[in-house]
């Protein structure tokens, strides 16, 4: 892919190569019907990357305001949502391993019963008055993030009983530019529903599949709490320098 102007002349210009399909989810997945009516039939068109694609919203929290990163209760110290209390921590870097500081993360997930707060969720499961299950926050100077929540439940897709989604948490991340805008969902290791999930198994490469799994840390036991702890790092597309020519 062409970079439209010289990187030497414009320090700070990042290099973005197309996603390597081998590390990604299949575009069309058998039995995932919408992928056959929505994925374009025509080949994607290659084009140079200009300022327009290499820039992107900066300080996006000025447009999409952040809040706190504790989803386990409505107000600090208030009653906790039902379910298993857990924490997630991780780090966001680019392909060079450089931390992405100030990246905006959006989280959304089902409650412990597998119910989302969403007009389109028709699952016959109860909402939890102490759980919102969505929020935004920023990564710190080292690209690190952490949040507290409740482990989500699994749920059936629509009114189908043949496909139950395993527990998972959605991540939406604004990286450095329009090119590394990123969305994914992260799964829990050892869940029996993982074996049959179309989306998780739509990542053919087993190593790549591990990159959408939470890594369990030893469960923390305090006098009052039993806390599941997980880690999930992300590598967003983009390199800060041009590779050496051999």
């Amino acid at each position: 892919m062409l970079i439209h102007f010289e990187t030497e002349a414009s320090p700070g210009v990042r290099q973005y190569l197309p996603y390597d399909d081998r590390t990604q989810t299949l575009r069309q997945i058998k039995d995932y019907p919408r992928s056959f009516t929505r994925v374009p039939a025509q080949p994607l068109i290659d084009r140079p990357l200009t300022l327009s694609e290499l820039t992107g919203p900066t300080e996006i929290e000025r447009r999409l305001p952040t809040g706190n990163a504790d989803f386990s209760c409505l107000v600090p110290g208030g009653p906790r949502a039902l379910g298993q209390f857990m924490t997630v921590a991780g780090r966001i870097t680019d392909e060079d391993g450089a931390p992405l500081a100030g990246a905006l993360i959006e989280i959304w997930q089902a409650n412990a019963s597998g119910k989302y707060i969403h007009e389109y969720d028709s699952h016959q499961a109860p909402l939890d008055p102490n759980f919102i299950g969505q929020g935004r926050f920023l990564t710190d100077a080292e690209g690190g993030y952490q949040f507290r929540t409740i482990k989500p439940g699994g749920y059936p897709v629509g009114s189908n009983d043949w496909w139950w989604r395993p527990p998972h948490i959605h991540f939406s991340i604004f990286g450095m530019s329009w090119m590394d805008r990123f969305i994914t969902q992260i799964f829990f290791p050892g869940e029996p529903l993982n074996e049959a999930d179309l989306l998780l198994n739509g990542i053919p490469d087993p190593e790549a599949r591990q990159r959408v799994m939470f890594e369990p840390l030893p469960t923390k036991v305090t006098k009052t709490l039993n806390i599941l702890e997980f880690r999930r790092d992300f590598v967003l597309r983009g390199k800060s320098k041009t590779p050496e020519l051999l």
Partner: peptide
């Protein structure tokens, strides 16, 4: 260009992206 990267796999946004966002 195709080094088996470490880039995290994309996933679908799914049906429940919060309207509030």
């Amino acid at each position: 260009e195709t080094r088996p990267a470490i880039v995290s796999p994309y996933g679908t946004i799914g049906p429940f992206f919060p309207f509030a966002f």
